[in-house]
């Protein structure tokens, strides 16, 4: 693994909404640093206000980072492809999932199409191929599949890998290197992202689960009740008044025997 590029986006803390390093992008950088490549290029594309949050990546031991400065709401895909073409890296690493803004889950695929490279999603481990008859430059990958399964792959040539959250955790970001690291701003031209500006933005929240207590029955019944997912039951209230909502919660608690 001689020449690695990492794409880093700005994350957003789910509770405070404060800008931070994006979790899986930080893991991608961790993996890139652990590979000890001959050349490591770290790239961020975004508005000039992103500078301070990018320092969290520098704090992981990165000496410099290229910031493709775009206007607010611009689509970063084209400038990233253009910039990556200059460097021609053999491996592009990035997180599987953005936390905010333009770095959507589509971005790795669009970049790979632009670079004419393969995409390997949800990677948890990368290392040089150790089979005796492997092609020089090939890499052994481990890919995360649902339910904790893993798949071993061998990749040759240039490819884009996205990092799964179960990859090795990112090292802590230290204040001193973050302060000393260099952010190199590079002016870039990009078209506005009309799709994203049309979208409605709202904070993600988990789908609420209906809690129910089953009493009686055999052990098998209780196991089924606890494991089978049921839907369509319960009461759906859309924009209820405070009183109606409270009454529904109260009734439900009485029904489940949690209140006298």
């Amino acid at each position: 693994m001689l020449d690695v590029a990492v794409l880093l986006s700005i994350g957003r803390h789910p509770v405070s909404g404060r800008a931070r390093r994006a979790a899986t992008d930080a893991q991608a950088l961790e993996m890139a640093l652990a590979l000890r490549p001959r050349r490591l290029t770290a790239i961020h594309a975004g508005p000039p206000t992103d500078g301070e949050a990018l320092r969290a990546y520098l704090g992981m031991g990165l000496e410099r980072l290229t910031h493709l400065v775009l206007s607010e709401g611009a689509d970063p895909v084209e400038p990233l492809i253009a910039h990556l073409r200059q460097f021609d890296p053999s491996l592009v690493l990035t997180g599987r999932q953005a936390e905010d803004g333009e770095g959507s889950g589509m971005l790795p695929y669009l970049i790979a199409r632009g670079l004419d490279a393969a995409v390997v999603p949800d990677v948890v481990r990368i290392g040089p191929a150790d089979a005796p008859n492997s092609i020089p430059g090939a890499a052994d990958l481990v890919q995360a599949l649902p339910r904790g399964q893993r798949r071993a792959l061998t990749a040759t040539g240039r490819f884009v890998a996205t990092i799964h959250p179960s990859a090795p955790p990112a090292r802590a970001s230290a204040y001193g290197p973050a302060r000393r690291g260099v952010i190199e701003p590079v002016a870039a031209q990009a078209t506005a992202d009309l799709f994203l500006s049309d979208c409605e933005h709202r904070p993600w929240r988990p789908k609420p689960k209906l809690m129910r207590v089953k009493r009686g029955g055999s052990a098998l019944d209780r196991l089924k009740a606890a494991t089978e997912s049921k839907s369509g039951k319960g009461q759906l209230l859309v924009n209820p008044t405070a009183e109606a909502g409270a009454l529904a919660i109260y009734d439900s608690l009485v029904e489940q025997g949690m209140l006298p």
């Binding site: 803390h13 405070s16 931070r20 704090g59 802590a172 970001s173 230290a174 204040y175 001193g176």
Partner: peptide, 20 residues
């Protein structure tokens, strides 16, 4: 501050503390 070598859950806690 220089190495980011805070061990265990302490590093996780510090990152949450900075963000929230």
């Amino acid at each position: 501050l220089e190495l980011g070598a805070t061990p265990g859950k302490a590093a996780v806690m510090l990152e949450e503390l900075r963000a929230t």
